[in-house]
């Protein structure tokens, strides 16, 4: 058993001059092919039993004196592989800025207020159909130093393992219709045909009347090889 290759027509390159910090950090030599063995086809598993009740509700898990400020959102979707097989029991870790575009991270120096009732990190585990759901606050855009007047579009970071270390994925979910997407070198580094896969869609069916706007974000992990090759370990 092995997993299909990372599809480099879907993933951004390691060097992308418009995103300046790739210049000294992106590997320059070709990746060396590694036939998958048990090291790559196994991986850590964190099921629902490892979570705390408030982990999937970022409007609850950072409260000190009241409710966090901002637009409440519900983000939901399915985690599948390339063959549309649901990926059940998979951990999703998320982190994000608050409604003002400020992270609680100590290194974030953006002159926008922290929210004493918002921490900005959470996690959930997919159900038997691969579905996940968390509640949060819509993150704000924020400036960064990549170029003059550079702003990151609003986004939520997501981290998944999937069934093995080969299916590991860290990505960002964006919001539909954001004018900053066209100007963002991180988003633009993604091959054009794959870009819409990291943009969520507004979903009225997920939206809860009087409470929160709903967004849908499906995630596709590498599929299994249909014809496993005979491999040396």
């Amino acid at each position: 058993m092995s997993f299909r290759a990372r599809d480099w027509s879907s993933h951004p390159p390691l060097l992308y001059p418009d995103y300046k910090s790739t210049g000294l950090r992106g590997a320059t030599r070709p990746l060396v092919p590694l036939p998958q063995g048990s090291t790559e086809t196994t991986g850590p598993h964190y099921g629902a039993e490892t979570l705390s009740p408030a982990d999937a509700d970022l409007t609850l898990n950072g409260r000190s004196s009241g409710e966090p400020l901002g637009e409440r959102i519900i983000v939901t979707g399915r985690v599948t592989d390339e063959d549309d097989k649901p990926q059940a029991g998979m951990l999703i870790e998320i982190w994000q800025a608050n409604a003002a575009g400020r992270y609680i991270h100590k290194a974030d120096q953006h002159d926008a207020p922290l929210d004493p009732n918002f921490f900005g990190a959470g996690r959930c585990v997919t159900d038997a159909e691969g579905r996940y759901r968390f509640t949060s606050i819509k993150p704000g855009a924020y400036p960064w130093g990549n170029h003059d007047n550079a702003w990151r579009p609003a986004h939520i970071h997501l981290s998944l393992f999937g069934p093995s270390v080969a299916t590991r994925l860290v990505t960002q979910m964006y919001f539909p219709g954001d004018p900053l997407l066209d100007l963002d070198p991180i988003f633009q580094a993604t091959p054009a045909p794959a870009r819409d896969r990291v943009v969520s869609t507004f979903d009225l069916a997920t939206t809860e009347a009087g409470f929160a706007l709903g967004y849908r974000f499906d995630i596709v992990l590498r599929g299994r090889d249909e014809t496993p090759m005979e491999r040396k370990p």
């Binding site: 990372r6 599809d7 879907s10 993933h11 951004p12 995103y19 599948t80 390339e82 063959d83 549309d84 870790e93 998320i94 982190w95 800025a97 992270y103 609680i104 991270h105 290194a107 974030d108 921490f119 900005g120 990190a121 959470g122 986004h155 970071h157 981290s159 994925l169 860290v170 990505t171 960002q172 991180i186 988003f187 993604t190 091959p191 045909p193 794959a194 870009r195 896969r197 990291v198 499906d218 995630i219 596709v220 992990l221 590498r222 599929g223």
Partner: peptide, 20 residues
């Protein structure tokens, strides 16, 4: 049917409070 892989995006500078 094959669905396209969700693209990777950078972990960014502010992962620590979420992952570590």
């Amino acid at each position: 049917m094959s669905k396209g892989q969700t693209p990777s995006q950078t972990v960014g500078p502010f992962f620590a409070y979420g992952l570590t």
